[in-house]
Write a protein that binds this DNA or RNA. Structure first.
Length: 577
DNA sequence: GCCGTTTTCGGCCCGACTGTTTTCAGTCG
């Protein structure tokens, strides 16, 4: 039995938190499990390995009790406490808490008094008006339950918006609001500003000379289908595309407090406020209350908020409670898009791209890059337009010729070769050896076992002509789960063999993700940020890969393709041969 | 259940809204 991954352990702790909450445990005990789950999910090393080494209590939020539970999980594959609680509380009870306004306390009450243990049972009870018989529940709640089912809550959890679409939409709304005469500043907040993979809704904050007037103006935008007031200086809306929008407006002297509060993350704010309380300060979206004086400090900028708490300004991408508020944390000089000198993964009409190698090279040059590798799909890609070995040989000639004719940018010939189920590439070694650069990616047989998939990708890192592994986990944000692979084993192999790992910038991939990129870097792996662009029009998506790298805390020096080609070239595995 | 520039015990962010209450617990962000 393989050791559970950090993701599996985190899910187990989250489940335990839910179960203890239903069991009526004090909330801080429940939160301890959720904190631990998050710490495990974000941990830069294997929590299973730490447990075996007896060092797991070095993970913040894991103490003696959770260590014991981890040991049980490693030795028996399960946690006894979870088994016991599962026997008492059906899974349907946790599902019931998906309904707005129904949390664990009230769900438990319905379970105890009416025996409701599933969404179906809840709906039936609401239809029969039996809920109002329970103290604390009334006709309005029954109506809201039925409305929630009508809206489809039971079938699907609220869909999440992938960041690039959400950003595009939110920027358009922000632009509309900025045109209002009362607007002083309008900014994106929440996960949009932190660069999360996806967001649940669009958070916007604004400063205005007349806050109520600007909040009211949200309803008038063309993009907005319907809007409602959510208090004096706030508005909530739904766009025609179905996204929900939250807007809060204050006067300019409080804008820093508001922006800080609504940028989050929740965990970052909790930690920030806990720190502040120890100094006698209470932080909210309205200001910083000082116990000593009774005064509330209003901040026009975020910098003032952090400064008053004795902290440097922390870039939004790092506000995830991953150590950024620890004593002695030094804010890194995070990478920016302009730091990138090359793109080592793109496609042309030779496979499934839209533009020619010449057009892609010109596009890369126009974006200020100094080198670009043409890496079309390989012979067994399986989605049409496969590049046969002969076609690749012709492509080598073509790109060499193009490079000779092109000034200002190094045009390299490469491939994105399929990693076959046995871990080998689908071109012969002598052909791969003629290329400047080879990305190896998994595009088939996603359903392999974790052990098989890990062996497959580790074997690819050990191949002498594979310079880099593309989109390591194959995930599609909000659409497709990653395939099951022991990423830590791959990081070890990549570091050992000198194989680089890509942060794929496609906005629905961002793979490596932020946590993996941080782990890989810590393991000594060389990271590159690639576009995987399929046309000139999408070469700008490096933005999303850079955002992922920033969330991983990476600087320009931590990303190999910030180097000019002359310095990058010798870092390739093939350069050592 | 965790944790320590006030603590090895007694704390553990902040504010708004909701529906049901007779003064507020639970939920949400």
């Amino acid at each position: 039995m393989p050791d559970p991954s950090n993701a599996v352990i985190a899910a187990a702790f989250d489940e335990l938190g839910d179960l203890y909450e239903l069991d009526g445990a004090v909330i801080h005990r429940v939160l301890a499990y959720r904190n631990a789950a998050k710490a495990v999910r974000d941990a830069p090393t294997s929590v299973s390995a730490l447990t075996r080494e007896g060092r797991v209590t070095t993970v913040p939020g894991i103490g003696k009790t959770l260590e014991e539970k981890l040991r049980a999980l490693l030795e028996t594959g399960t946690i006894p406490a979870a088994e016991k609680l599962r026997a008492r509380f059906p899974a349907g009870l946790i599902e019931m808490t998906r309904l707005p306004g129904l949390g664990p306390k009230r769900a438990r009450k319905l379970f105890d008094e009416l025996g409701l243990d599933s969404l179906d049972a809840l709906r039936e009870a609401a239809e029969q008006q039996r809920l109002r018989g329970v103290k604390g529940f009334g006709p309005k709640f029954e109506a809201s339950v039925l409305a929630a089912f009508e809206a489809g809550v039971a079938e699907r959890p609220a869909p999440r918006l992938v960041l690039h679409r959400a950003t595009e939409l939110a920027e358009a709304i922000a632009e509309g609001l900025r045109a209002h005469p009362a607007a002083v500043r309008v900014e994106l907040a929440g996960g949009l500003r932190r660069g999360s993979d996806s967001v649940k809704d669009l958070d916007l904050v604004a400063a205005a000379t007349d806050p109520a007037a600007l909040a009211g103006a949200l309803a008038d935008l063309d993009l907005v289908e319907s809007a409602s007031s959510a208090g004096e200086n706030a508005a909530r809306a739904r766009t025609h595309s179905g996204a929900s929008v939250d807007l809060r407006v204050v006067t300019p002297d409080q804008f820093g407090n508001l922006l800080q509060h609504f940028t989050g993350s929740r965990q970052h704010n909790v930690r920030l406020r806990e720190r502040a309380v120890k100094r006698g300060l209470h932080v909210s979206e309205y200001g910083i209350l000082d116990d000593a004086t009774g005064d509330t400090l209003r901040c026009a900028t975020e910098e003032e908020v952090y400064a008053r708490l004795g902290l440097p300004w922390i870039p939004p991408e790092l506000r995830e409670d991953r150590g950024e508020l620890d004593k002695g944390f030094v804010v890194p000089d995070l990478i920016v898009q302009d730091d990138l000198k090359g793109d080592l993964h793109c496609h042309t009409v030779a496979s499934d791209g839209r533009d020619t190698a010449q057009e892609m090279a010109a596009g890369a040059l126009a974006r200020g890059l100094q080198y670009v590798a043409i890496t079309d799909h390989s012979a067994t890609h399986g989605f049409g337009n496969d590049v046969s070995p002969d076609a690749l040989r012709r492509q080598i000639e073509l790109v060499h010729d193009l490079n000779d004719r092109t000034d200002g940018i190094e045009v390299l010939i490469g491939t994105e070769t399929n990693i076959l189920p046995d871990g080998s590439p689908d071109y012969d070694d002598d052909l791969l050896a003629q290329l400047d650069w080879v990305v190896g990616s998994v595009h088939t047989s996603f359903g392999m076992s974790r052990a098989e998939m890990t062996r497959r990708i580790v074997a690819a890192t050990e191949h002498p002509w594979i310079d880099c592994i593309g989109h390591l986990t194959g995930r599609k944000i909000a659409a497709r789960a990653p395939y099951d692979v022991d990423v830590e084993a791959v990081f070890e192999a990549a570091a050992r063999t000198g194989t680089m790992l890509e942060i794929n910038s496609a906005p629905d991939r961002r793979d490596l993700n932020d946590v993996h990129a941080r782990q890989a870097h810590a393991a000594g792996v060389r990271i590159v940020i690639n576009t995987d662009a399929h046309g000139v029009s999408t070469q700008g998506i490096a933005r999303w890969g850079v955002l992922t790298a920033r969330r991983a805390g990476l600087t320009a020096a931590d990303v190999a393709n910030t180097l000019p080609w002359a310095q990058f070239a010798p870092l390739r595995k093939r350069a050592a041969r």
